[in-house]
Amino acid sequence: MSNPRAEDKRARSTAARLYAVQALFQMEASGQSADRVQREFQDYRIGVEHEGEISPEADENLFTRITDDAVTWQSKIDQSTDRALVAKWPIERIDPVLRALFRAAGAELVTPSTPPRVVITEYVRLAQAFFPDGREPKFVNAVLDHMAHSLRPEAFN
C-alpha cells in the first residue's frame, strides 16, 4: 500500500533537485550569485502559478543545500566529474545542462545526507526528462556511478 506522505516527500525532493539543476544552469549562464538565483526561484518559480500552470512544490531546504553545496564544493565536484569523463573531454566541454546536473548530483555525493544509489537514480531520471531521446541518461548513470565510488567509497562496501 502506498504512503501518500512518503510520495509527497519524494515528489518534493525530486522537484528540489530539478530546480537545483535549473538554478545552477542559470547561475553559470548569467553569472548571478547563488543567493540571488535561490531567491528568484523561491519567490517566482517554486510552487508558483504562471499562465495557468502551477509549478511543483519543492523541499526548499534541499534545494538551498544542493545549490549552496554545489557552489562550495564546485572545484572538488568538477575534479571528480573530470576523472569520470573521457580524459580528452573535460567538464568545460560538455553540455551546460549536463554540467549543472553533475554539479547538483556531486553536491549530494560530497555530503553523506543521501545514499549514493538514490542520488544516481534521481539524477538519471532528471537526465531522462531533459534528454528524452538521447544517450545522455546512460552517460549520466556511468559518470555518476564513477563519481559516487570515488567520493563515497564507504557506501559500496
Rank of each mutant, 00 (worst) to 15 (best):
E7C: 03
I77C: 05
G134C: 07
H146C: 03
F25N: 08
T64H: 04
L85F: 07
A155D: 11
R99M: 11
V71F: 00
T67G: 05
G31H: 13
V48R: 10
A15N: 10
Q74P: 03
G47S: 01
A58F: 10
P4Q: 10
W73V: 08
A15Q: 06
P90Q: 13
F41L: 01
D8P: 02
L126I: 10
T72Q: 13
L18K: 05
E122Y: 04
R125G: 11
I94S: 01
D78F: 07
A84C: 08
A15S: 14
L109N: 01
F41V: 00
F102N: 00
Y19A: 00
T114I: 14
M147I: 07
P153Y: 06
M147N: 01
I120K: 01
V140M: 06
S80V: 09
D35K: 10
L109V: 09
L24K: 01
L151I: 14
E49C: 06
L101T: 00
G47L: 14
F102K: 02
P116S: 00
E60L: 15
A87P: 07
H50Y: 14
S75M: 14
R36H: 10
F139C: 06
Q74N: 06
F41P: 01
A29P: 05
P56L: 13
F156D: 09
V124E: 06
D82N: 15
W73K: 11
L151S: 11
V71K: 00
E40T: 12
E108C: 08
A16Y: 09
T111F: 07
A15L: 09
H146A: 12
D59N: 09
V140F: 10
R65V: 15
E53R: 11
G134L: 10
Q128D: 14
M147W: 02
V110I: 15
A148M: 00
N157V: 09
E49F: 05
L109W: 04
S80G: 07
E49L: 02
A87M: 08
Q38S: 05
A105T: 04
K76W: 04
E57C: 07
P137I: 03
T111H: 04
L151D: 02
Q22L: 14
Q128W: 04
K138Y: 11
A29G: 11
L126M: 05
K9L: 15
A6I: 15
